[in-house]
Design a protein around this nucleic acid. Structure first.
Lengths: 145, 145
DNA sequence: AGTGAAACCTTAATGGC
DNA sequence: GCCATTAAGGTTTCACT
């Protein structure tokens, strides 16, 4: 993992459909050399895949929210993971330090939809209470890496 | 934007390097038909690009945090955007309802690094105080769409 | 309008240097 | 890591529904 690898990753994050020759031109390598490095980066797990960047509003997901979860003391992270894994609206979830035990990122069609998802999560027996913040305006769009 | 478009987008989110023929096999269309729809989806902005999914830890970004920003009453969203746009550690930022004015998602090399970034943000004149939560374990990895 | 099939052209993938 | 060859996928055009 050297400076060239980071440059190649940067190019792929910018546009995953770039040809190996194009990337090679940017970083100063030939196409086969780039391919070997990309294969190695995928093999070692530095690159976990290639995905399309989608405009959520185009699919009708116009509302997003962040929800803090306050759980019972004995609640395990895996229990929380299990509870939210089935909900497609939960885009991201993690346990955190501080007052809250977990923080969820939710994408939904509208505020009413957000409310429904929160209700379903709050129905979990280990959830003591939730505290949510609806996103007003996005300043920086979430970017990979 | 019909059910076929959504299926194609789903396939591309799964793997942006799928061939048009492979996607066609999944959704029941020929390769050229898939390409035409993909081109249209890119043209209309439903698909904003293709990117590599990167494992942050492979690049040394092992620590992430969420930071709530409490600002002065007269602070505009654009002022916050301007202040954080220059920081590469800020992966995502948005204004939210509730007590806090904005919520930032930060990726850094370690806890000390997170602290430095927060200090820089707190130094902005419009920032009254910050409240941060360090991520302990990630339950659901942020996914596009 | 949108699709399916075929021709053409570009790019990916391999082996050798 | 670079160069050349072979195979595969992308791109365009045309006929059809």
């Amino acid at each position: 993992m050297d400076e060239l690898d980071r440059a190649i990753i940067g190019a792929l994050v910018e546009d995953a459909r770039s040809t190996y020759a194009e990337i090679g031109g940017q970083v100063g390598l030939s196409a086969p050399a780039v391919k070997r490095r990309v294969d190695r980066l995928v093999q070692t797990g530095a690159i976990t895949g290639f995905t399309a960047r989608v405009e959520p509003s185009a699919l009708g997901w116009t509302t997003e929210a962040y929800v803090e979860l306050f759980c019972q003391g004995k609640t395990s992270p895996s229990a929380i993971a299990l509870a939210v894994a089935g909900l497609p609206e939960v885009v991201s979830a993690c346990t955190v330090t501080g007052e809250a035990d977990a923080l969820l990122h939710i994408r939904a069609t509208d505020v009413r939809h957000v409310e429904q998802v929160i209700e379903r999560i709050a129905a979990e027996p280990f959830v003591v209470r939730t505290k949510s913040a609806i996103v007003l305006t996005r300043l920086i769009t979430p970017r990979p890496a």
